[in-house]
Design a protein around this nucleic acid. Structure first.
Length: 218
DNA sequence: AACCAGGAGAGAG
DNA sequence: CTCTCTCATGGT
């Protein structure tokens, strides 16, 4: 099958509508969630986020000066707490000292922002894209494990890595921020329902358009 | 009780 | 560039 990203968007939109992604009250909370959810289920992340919120620490300027061992306690349920605590503190310090806060970053170019964020240990391509798209409102498509698996199962050509997947989306959706934000949420929702490791192909609304449903393996 | 989850980094080939 | 290993908790 050779569905383009715009058509896939319409298919998934008809199933889930507006997913309201990224979940989070503030830009600071979105950034925290992006780091905490690395290879971790969102239910575990929510526990960490509410603990931080309950202590009144859901601001980067607070997290920049937090005691590391205290932060580790607060985010314990999200796993990989040593690396994540270090990353959260470092990123918070960097943003606060260089920009003062998130709002001042929104006027910067993508190139400058990437050069600023990328060197921080613990923030890879996907986390950086999530921050750019959902916290800074930059027209960047977030590619995760679900995205690559869905593209592969649908038989989309030339989408074997993050860079190619972003090109695939850019080709037919362009820089429509609203659609880029929602498409990622649509893919996550769809993948959770039908396209996990143990696929629910029998009930899948896209089974007629998916190679995997007819016997193909990952 | 193994397997997986909204990754990243380091090393090897 | 692609593989493989490690980091770690919590739900099924």
């Amino acid at each position: 099958m050779n569905i383009n990203a715009a058509s896939l968007y319409e298919e998934l939109f008809s199933l889930y509508g507006n997913t309201q992604w990224w979940p989070g009250e503030t830009d600071d909370e979105i950034i925290l969630g992006a780091i905490l959810t690395q290879n971790t289920s969102w239910s575990n992340v929510e526990k960490s986020l509410s603990r931080i919120r309950n202590e009144g620490l859901m601001k980067l300027e607070m997290l920049a000066d937090i005691d590391k061992s205290h932060l580790i306690e607060l985010i314990h349920s999200s796993g990989f707490y040593n690396q994540k605590a270090r990353t959260i503190i470092e990123l918070s310090k960097m943003i606060v000292s260089n920009y003062g806060g998130i709002d001042a970053m929104k006027n910067e170019s993508n190139e400058k922002l990437e050069a600023f964020i990328k060197p921080i240990s613990g923030i890879g391509q996907e986390t950086m894209d999530a921050i750019l798209c959902y916290a800074l409102d930059k027209p960047v498509f977030v590619v995760d494990k679900y995205t690559l698996r869905l593209m592969d199962r649908l038989g989309v050509k030339n989408v074997s890595n993050i860079r190619k997947a972003k090109e695939y989306v850019l080709a037919s959706i362009g820089e429509d921020l609203g659609k880029l934000k929602n498409l990622h949420g649509l893919i996550v929702n769809f993948s959770k329902d039908y396209c996990r490791s143990k696929p629910a192909c029998n009930d899948c609304p896209l089974r007629n358009k998916c190679d995997f449903a007819s016997g193909k393996q990952d």
